[in-house]
Design a protein around this nucleic acid. Structure first.
Length: 575
RNA sequence: CGGGAUGUAGCGCAGCUUGGUAGCGCACCUCGCUUGGGACGAGGGGGUCGCAGGUUCAAAUCCUGUCAUCCCGACCA
């Protein structure tokens, strides 16, 4: 490709609306342009990168025995009613009506459609297992799209779905996908960690996420997930799913008798601990949440944080948020109290479900709110002063240095970008949508299903997050838009141009993806652009061509060597 | 949806406080000059100042409304 003809506009400055480095660089280097909030044009360079990733995904999926197909982007509401998700998916599902007023939606994922395909096409266990996948644009009307390609509303995704006759079959399909995923990301030049995760709105039981770990030092951390991991045994999990063994702390408030004390204006745990001169760990915190419109009081030890996903899952909820002050007022009224937030306790609450984190069980002589503003109960004990809630579960957020449940070593935390995700769905969709096959014994059984996603466009952005420097992108070779760029320093020097053209022709003949920067620009512009765009190899033809020498630069390391044009061509061909 | 901010040329911004005929840098076009790290000179094109009302002799500037975008929280590939 001749640079003078390539459709790309690099910018001298970073766009002002970009926050993370991948977004800044992809816009500045001319890969993407925003069309509207969370929706981007993939310009020619970007499209080449995406196709590279897609092809790696295709090869590995095909090797793993999956078959590619393509499902519609627009889906009928009926299927979503069958699965029950029309009512629970929420506002991310972009709903629309056709001219006959029939309800449709833009596909955010394709479990419903694939299940309908499976139930029509698979009649016998003899056809199983089956794994079908597609690569396609998805649309999720995200509450807050941001970070460019890392969280768009429209994005490109590979989604695969497996059908098996039994659990063992699913385990095997799942295992095969996990292996394929590791290979895919490795080939894309991305180191990933497979971590346990919550299965969220898609449903099912077991799930893992593939995280690209990003270092904490980065000025704007694009990693939206906290990953806890054990350096000793390899345990790793998303914070929404991670579990731990707590380090011992003081859980006895040492108050000899239970009594109500004045705690004027002290409505934070920190303030309360300071005021009463006790550690936060002897206070029982009570937080009011709204889960699917119902009130829930969550009790947890004062020094710990509630993990909202765990809490929501404890009630099989779809939506969770902390209660507003007016909602707390409403609860207080209904229960015959009038306390404000900060003094709430579980005792005597009406129309509120109460759940306790496991951490509160061991509390003795502790401090707790009793629904009286500016007062707390100290020296409280379960069963005497306050009833221990029936429902106790692990609803806490793990913290760094908590101990690993598998081996006891301290856990570490890091940020991660989720580029892939695999789920064991089980029979959630096949049962709901009556998708069955006939098993060996002649029985009709629902498919045991799995689903497996890879964010193609997000993977590209994650690669930029991991591979860049102050000058621009450093694409891993396997997903770079072009392999090599030839830069003649002066377009007025006939020898330079002739050699550059010659190298270009040789590489073209060898089917190498090559750019010749034939623009009438000064050297500085061409060299800056080459670095910014991030082509893995650069051959610079300058004055030293008099001695039959060119500069050969590897962008990944920024190492340069001076060699003959013939040698440069040879090195590229040897890649 | 809650909290904060911003909308002026393709990109980055000034002008607004104190109303008076819309500016700067980059990019773009022409000519010259220049060619190893985003040169220089001369000339040129491009904007209903987000949109709609209002105040005023006069609005980018003041007022009201509205839309959009960005940042912080809940979502997720």
């Amino acid at each position: 490709m001749r640079m003078s003809k390539l459709f790309v506009q690099t910018l001298r400055e970073f766009p002002s609306d970009a926050e993370v480095i991948s977004h800044k660089l992809l816009v500045r280097a001319g890969y993407i342009r925003k069309l509207t909030n969370g929706v981007y044009n993939y310009l020619p360079l970007m499209w080449r990168v995406l196709k590279k990733i897609e092809n790696i995904v295709r090869e590995e999926m095909d090797n793993a025995g999956a078959q590619e197909l393509l499902m519609p982007f627009v889906q009928p509401a009926e299927l979503w009613h069958e699965s029950g998700r029309w009512d629970v998916y929420g506002k991310e599902l972009m709903r629309l009506k056709d001219r006959h007023n029939r309800e449709m939606c833009l596909g955010p994922t394709h479990e419903e459609v694939i299940t309908s395909i499976g139930r029509e096409g698979i009649r016998s266990y003899k056809q199983l297992p089956v794994n079908l996948y597609q690569i396609q644009s998805k649309f999720r009307d995200e509450i807050r799209p941001r970070f460019g390609l890392l969280r768009g509303r429209e994005f490109i995704m590979k989604d695969a779905y497996s059908f098996d006759a039994d659990e063992q079959g699913l385990d095997k399909s799942y295992e095969i996908m996990a292996k394929a995923y590791n290979k895919i990301f490795e080939r894309c030049g991305l180191e990933t960690k497979m971590v346990q995760s919550d299965s969220g709105a898609i449903g099912g039981s077991v799930s893992h996420e593939f995280m690209v770990l990003v270092n904490e030092e980065a000025e704007n951390n694009a990693g939206e997930n906290d990953v806890f991991y054990c350096t000793k045994c390899g345990y790793s999990a998303n914070s929404n799913h991670a579990v731990s063994i707590l380090n011992p702390v003081e859980t006895d408030g040492k108050f000899e008798t239970a009594q109500i004390v004045d705690t004027p204006n002290v409505h934070s745990i920190e303030g309360l601990a300071e005021f009463l001169k006790v550690p936060q760990s002897v206070i029982c915190k009570c937080l009011i949440y709204v889960i699917d419109g119902k009130y829930v009081a969550a009790l947890i030890r004062g020094d710990r944080t509630v993990e909202e996903t765990k809490l929501m899952n404890a009630f099989q909820g779809n939506d969770i948020r902390i209660a507003r002050n007016d909602e707390i007022d409403e609860i207080m009224q209904a229960s015959g109290f009038n306390a404000i937030a900060g003094f709430i306790g579980p005792k005597g609450l009406k129309n509120v479900e109460i759940i306790a984190d496991e951490t509160v069980k061991e509390l003795k002589n502790f401090v707790i709110g009793i629904n009286q503003t500016d007062k707390h109960l100290i020296g409280a004990n379960w069963g005497i002063d306050v009833e221990l809630p029936q429902k106790t579960e692990d609803i806490r957020l793990v913290e760094e240095n908590d101990k690993c449940v598998d081996c006891g070593a301290p856990l570490k935390v890091t940020k991660g970008i989720e580029v892939g995700n695999i789920f064991k769905l089980g029979t959630k969709y096949s049962k709901a949508m009556n998708a069955t096959f006939t098993d060996k014994d002649g029985q009709e059984k629902p498919f045991i299903m799995g689903c497996y996603g890879i964010g193609i466009s997000r993977t590209a952005a994650a690669a930029v997050e991991r591979h860049h420097d102050e000058y621009g992108i450093k694409w891993p070779l396997a997903i770079a838009p072009y392999t090599v760029i030839i830069v003649p320093v002066s377009d007025q020097d006939e020898t330079q141009m002739k050699v550059a053209e010659d190298i270009y022709q040789k590489l073209l003949d060898a089917k190498i993806e090559v750019i010749l920067d034939d623009r009438q620009e000064r050297a500085g512009v061409k060299l800056k652009d080459a670095d910014l765009i991030g082509i893995p190899y650069r051959i610079t033809v300058g004055k030293t061509i008099q001695d039959n020498l060119v500069e050969f630069k590897e962008r990944a390391t920024n190492n340069t060597i001076t060699i003959t044009p013939e040698e440069a061509v040879k090195r590229i061909l040897a890649l």
